[in-house]
Structure formats: C-alpha cells, structure tokens
Amino acid sequence: MNKHKGAGSSLPHHLLRRFGPLAGLLLLCAVLAVLSDHFLTFDNLVNVFRQSAVNALLALGQLVVIVTAGIDLSVGSILGFCCVLVALLVKSGVPAGLAIPLSLAAGTALGACNGVLLTKLKLPHPFIPTLGMMNVARGLALVISGGFPISELPPGVRFFGAGAVLGIPAPVLVVVLFCVLFHLFLTRTTPGRDIYAIGGNAQAARLSGVPVDGRLNAVYALSGFMSAVAAIVLAGRMNSGFPLAGAGAELDSIAAVIIGGASFFGGVGSVGGALVGALIMGVLRNGLNLLDVSAYWQTVVIGVVIVAAVWVDVLRQRASRRIGE
C-alpha cells in the first residue's frame, strides 16, 4: 500500500493492521524452528498447509459473512452434509464430474436459505438462522447416511484431498485458487465493495443504493458454497464421507477470520488475514504436536491465542484512536 506513504502518523497503524497477523505467524514459525528440527522442513510445511486447507476454505466463506457484520454458525454442518452427499452420490454410480457440482449446488442452496431467512423473515441476527441451519444440516447429514461413514471413494473425488500436481498437494492448490478469487472479488468488484459498505454502515449503504438484502443473500450462499468446497477436499483426504465431519469447524473458521484482523463489527477484514489466521492455527497445532504437547493442552493453547489475538486488536484500535485525536 504505497498509497499510504503520505499518511504520516497513521502509517504504523496501517502497517500493524495489515501485517500484524503475518508478523505473528512469522514469529510463531521462528520460535518453532528453534524449538524443533523438524518444523522448518519442506515436507512439514506442506503438511501444515494441507492440514489447514479445510479451515482456510471455510474461513474464506466466513470472512465474507463477518465483513458484513454477520456470522455463519452452519459452515461445519453444511460441510458434514455435503461430505456425505458427495460420497453417497459417487457410491450410487453418479460420476464424480456430476456428483461434485451437485454437492456444491446443495451447499450453496443451504447457505442461501440462511440469507433468505435473515433478509425475508427479518430474523433479528444471523446468529439465529445459521444456528438453526447448523442443526438442520447436521441432522440431514445423519439422516441420509444413516449415521454411518461411506468409505472408498473413486479417484475423481480423492484427487481433491489426496492428489497432487507437480508435487504440490491438490488441497493447497484449491486454497490458493480460492484465495485469489476471493481477493479479487472483495477488492476489485462492486459487489465486493458493497459487502464492506454493508458491514461498515448498512443504513448508509442502503441510502446509497446498495441492494443490501440481495447482497446478504449472496454472501450466505457463498459461505455455503465454500463449505461444500471444503467438504469435497475433506472427503477426498479421508477417502470417505462421514456425517460428523466438520463438527466444531464453524468456530475454528470464525477464530481464523478474527485472528486474521477482521472485526466482528463488520466492514474490516481481508483474504490475506483470514488465510494467515487459518495458518496460525494450523502451525500452532503442528508445532505443539512436534513438541509432544498433548492434544488436550493444544485446545487450551488455541483458546488462549484466540482471546490474545483479539485483545491485541483492541489495543491496536485504542492506539490508533489516540493517534487520530
């Protein structure tokens, strides 16, 4: 952002807002590189990236929702439903080339339901429709699967979780592709800018002619679509569709977006930040594994990091307000 060179006292604040999460990630990596010989190997880093892929994909959808000052609690359950759906379809003989688009469409439709419930029924807060959808989608996943995992998927689905192109794992490529698309969408298109405007001030956006309800419907549909994308990647990696896939993943995705510098109050957040947020969580889990910290303690550490990241953000904003005055 060389545009900000003339911005005087707000320069460090802009840099901090923009690169604070990245600095945190690099610091974390540096510490782990010192503590563990295995951390800074190519194979391990690719592994971290691959393990973070599902969370990163969910976080992209969640990011767009949070930028509108919303929240989507249903992403983990929609992931579970689509995971089972794609497995059932391919098992019943539908070719992967058709089963995958159908599953993506199903995830998008469930997400769109969230948006319509919010904008047409005028439910008071996106928490409510997405909490409902979290239960509905999880229930549907259990219903259509009978509660059992569906294993041994064809290569067309497995590729997205376990395949590789030129040595780069397919999940990593999927994440990179969608990060680029989302970044372009949010920064270079008018609907993308409308989304920031809605989160920054919905009333002003409406008075400026932004079709607020339409944009919100699209945003929740997009989040459902990303849940389905994550579902394909997860089904491919696990070589199965299991109905409890993604349980609790909604909270991980929210954590990644918030650690990445987005604001719960809307209007602020970036693709780079969300990706870094997902990677911080992945690196932390990986590093704690390498250091032989028990999975139980890992959960404690992740919890502390989420609160600490937001607290740092609060301090940052307080500092910038002082600069502003």
Partner: peptide, 22 residues
C-alpha cells in the same frame, strides 16, 4: 451518510458504480 471505515473514493463511488468490476 457515510461508510466511515471505507475510503473517500469508495464512498464517493458507491451510488454510481454499476458495473461488476471496479
């Protein structure tokens, strides 16, 4: 009237930008 968190340019362009790409 304003989206305070957005830039001057974005605020000015909000009602008139009609194409998909900025």
């Amino acid at each position: 009237g304003l989206v305070l968190s957005a830039s001057i340019r974005a605020n000015l362009a909000l009602p008139s930008a009609r194409r998909f790409l900025i």
